[in-house]
Nucleic acid binder design. Structure first.
Lengths: 112, 112
DNA sequence: TGTGATACTAACCCAAAGGAGAGTGTAATG
DNA sequence: CATTACACTCTCCTTTGGGTTAGTATCACA
């Protein structure tokens, strides 16, 4: 009984659930990924900012950094002036899109 | 161009995406739903607390209230002493389980 | 007799998330 | 000659989420 409770307690924290949410939980992470996906090609910083409006510089930068560190997006810098930076989905990031789709689809069904 | 940008800006906020996340975004909401689902029957308050440990009373209460107001779970009170209250999935809540499954499954795949 | 189980609520506090606004350097555009 | 665009960074401020602790009423059990 004690044992079972103990195991159960730790169960939920160890599901793929928390793992996934650690990567894409947060206010804008899923939206950022989805925005790139909908665009069918990499997005530049300011384009992202407009799409995720009313996101702030700070949040956008943090969001992109987190997603990059998680390996879900890549950052490509072009040595130009004025600067140009593109953010695109990695293979890992692409593998998440079906998941995001189910979230989006469920919501759309309920909205009407 | 202006028009397109304007439309695109508002797009992401109006997707089913944000709708869904407003309902199940947050630290424990998905876990709470998933816990009930895994249990295959309604859960009592303290049982939930143990499963979602280390959740606090306050967070659990808020989580349950929000989910109830969203129509994803129901609350059934038995007029007993000591009190007994059960929380179960509504049909709407059940319809979300497949979505939660995809999130969980993706995470499990990546964890190994 | 007193301890624990039940399902909470209320008051207070803290840390982290997020927003606002200014600044950077260069180059094309009006 | 001034403005705009680009991709940010930095500092300060506010908001929010969540934790901690204490307390409630009643009954069963040791």
């Amino acid at each position: 009984m004690e044992d079972i409770d103990y195991i159960k307690e730790n169960r939920l924290e160890d599901t793929g659930f928390s793992y996934t949410l650690n990567l894409i939980g947060g206010k804008y992470k899923m939206q950022a990924l989805y925005a790139i996906s909908l665009n069918h090609s990499p997005l530049r910083y300011n384009a992202m900012k407009r799409l995720l409006s009313p996101i702030s510089f700070k949040s956008l930068t943090n969001t992109l950094k987190d997603l990059e560190h998680s390996g879900l997006i890549y950052r490509k810098e072009y040595p130009q002036i004025p600067p140009k930076v593109e953010y695109g989905l990695t293979d890992l990031g692409k593998s998440l899109i079906p998941v995001l789709d189910t979230i989006c689809t469920w919501g759309e069904k309920q909205m009407k």
